[in-house]
Design a protein around this nucleic acid. Structure first.
Length: 263
DNA sequence: GCGACAG
DNA sequence: ATCTTGTCGC
């Protein structure tokens, strides 16, 4: 149905107004409902899936680290990509590009998009799903980094953020039980009707008894994934750690690869 | 003017 | 994101 849209790739040389305009276009082209090439249930029940003959999808985690200049200033971004299938790592690639703009809330894809697309170019396997470290639809213009890259590559994607950019939780998100999800809806700061379901606060991990708590993740549709499925995917892919495995591995790889670079 | 603000 | 020791708890 949809096609890749390289013409909508993030460009750090655009003006702020042009960036925001491009994001509105990305949001209008994005699909915030399930349109996957596989049944997401296979991620939760790998054994049953295998017995039924269902193949595991290639789930790709993406994360960035930054390289500093001789003067101690961040001048390059390193994007790490880890492809997994059935819980196993099948490929890892990374790319480094110069940074064009500083970090600006709401314009993250224009800072990290280039290195991400460059790294994805190095991937030889065909991705069935992308998991990004950042928001998808939980974004001022409903076009976070997961949505932007998902649309450009036309690959189903999910945004996994460690903190909330915008939107309002429908209930308290303090000390939730593991497995709990709380809807995040649009508020006045979001370019969508108030109350629109943007994603979910997802408690992938939680301590048992002590007086210490883990904060939830904020999961939202990037492209071709609905909010419930996005949350289900985050839960299914999280095992021993708070972050879904593909993203956690990409995070670790981003640091390792960074350490193997000279200047 | 004031507050909010992914990585 | 990044800079970093100690410290709490299982």
């Amino acid at each position: 149905m949809h096609q890749p849209r390289p013409d909508l790739a993030p460009d750090g040389s655009l003006s702020r107004a042009e960036m925001e305009s491009l994001q509105r276009e990305i949001a209008s082209v994005a699909t915030f409902e399930d349109d996957l090439s596989f049944d997401p249930a296979v991620l939760s029940n790998p054994l049953e899936a295998a017995a039924s003959g269902d193949e595991q999808p290639v789930v790709v985690g993406v994360d960035q680290s930054f390289l500093t200049n001789e003067d101690g200033e961040q001048d390059r971004a390193l994007s790490a990509v880890v492809a997994t299938r059935g819980g196993e790592v099948i490929e890892r690639v990374h790319a480094v590009t110069d940074l064009e703009i500083p970090y600006i809330p709401g314009l993250l894809s224009f800072r990290e998009g280039r290195p991400i697309l460059a790294a994805l170019e190095e991937l030889s396997v065909e991705p069935d799903l992308f998991l990004f470290d950042g928001s998808g639809r939980i974004h001022f213009r409903q076009a976070g980094i997961a949505t932007h890259i998902g649309v450009v590559r036309n690959v189903p994607s999910v945004g996994v953020a460690k903190s909330l950019l915008c939107g309002t939780p429908r209930e308290n998100t303090d000390d939730l039980l593991e497995g709990t999800t709380i809807g995040i809806e649009a508020n006045s700061r979001v370019d969508a009707p108030d109350g629109t379901l943007l994603g979910y606060a997802v408690q992938t991990r939680q301590y048992d008894s002590p007086n210490r708590y883990i904060n939830p993740l904020y999961v939202s549709p990037g492209h071709r994934v609905g909010p419930e499925t996005a949350a289900d995917i985050a839960l299914a892919l999280s095992s021993s750690y708070k972050l879904p495995e593909p993203v956690r591995l990409a995070d670790k790889y981003a640091d390792e690869a960074k350490g193997e670079i000279d200047t």
